[in-house]
Simulated scan of single mutants.
Amino acid sequence: MVDVLKIALGYQQHGFAVYPLAPETRTPLAGSHGYKDATKDPEQAKKWWGEHPNYNIGIGLDGVLVFDIDMGHKSEVNGNESLAKLSADGRAGQIPSTYVETTPNGGLHIFFTYPKELKLTSRSDLFSKNGEKTGLDYIATGVPVFPSIRENGMYQPLKGHKITKLAPAPQWLLNEIQRQRHPIASDYHSNADSWFGHFINRLVDGTDEGNRNQWLASIAGSVFRSGADPDNCADLIQTVNQRYVRPPLPNGELVKIINSISKREIARRS
């Protein structure tokens, strides 16, 4: 039987902050703050996993990003196939040898270091041109790690590499992440139909804990910039939070986002 507490303490000894996830899920405990609660304090780890050995383990990604290649996703997208096509087109290069875990769905979590000054968070469907699914994501906030389990399996490290020895992220991947964070305006806004389709795809895709604030701020900005009545925009964003954010952002935090974006947009219109 796996000693989860021993492994959690091991992550801390290797310099990683850890946080608990609900049993058999990648979801933070109810009332917690997910990766924001990650700690290197062994006493806190003993309290979490000593009392609840069925908790899964998440690690905070400080200066580390995970290149997530999805397989078995509900959208049926195949990240390996997407990456192969990108490589054939010259848009993606080789993946350096580094620490890798297989996910319960059969995908891969590939761990890299990156320059902290980039201040990365998370993003879905890298290399997407028109909002299509690629199954290629990145996460730089927090992720479940071995020996966490979900209903269809366990996160398992591939043999031959250690989480203490991570390769730097390849430049082609960092370039794409930067492109997604700062898209060229003409990519979407030159074609209203294309922009709206991209927005709808982003909206329905939703987001998970760890990227909620950034994602909702982005969605709210798009909604307010549509020119609709601010009160209607606020109502819509409340609905979006309940429907497409997993789990929904607490109302107090959501109101702060709405007020901030609303004030900015009202100032822009005046």
Results as ranks from 00 to 15, higher is better:
L5Q: 09
K6N: 07
G10Y: 00
Q13N: 13
A17F: 00
A22V: 01
P23V: 05
E24H: 08
P28A: 03
H33T: 06
G34V: 08
E51T: 12
Y55Q: 03
L61C: 06
I69P: 03
D70R: 04
M71N: 10
H73I: 03
K74V: 14
K74Y: 08
A84N: 08
K85G: 02
K85A: 14
D89T: 03
P96R: 11
S97R: 13
T98D: 00
T98S: 08
T102Y: 00
T102A: 12
N105P: 00
I110T: 06
L126C: 09
F127Y: 15
K133G: 05
T134P: 10
G135M: 07
G142C: 12
N152I: 14
Y155G: 10
H161F: 13
T164C: 04
P168V: 11
A169M: 10
P170Q: 07
L174D: 09
E176F: 08
R179A: 14
Q180F: 12
P183W: 02
A185T: 08
S186G: 01
D187G: 00
I200S: 03
L203N: 06
E209R: 09
S218Y: 10
L236D: 01
V245A: 14
R246T: 13
P248K: 11
L249G: 01
L249W: 07
G252Y: 05
L254H: 08
A267E: 13
R268F: 12
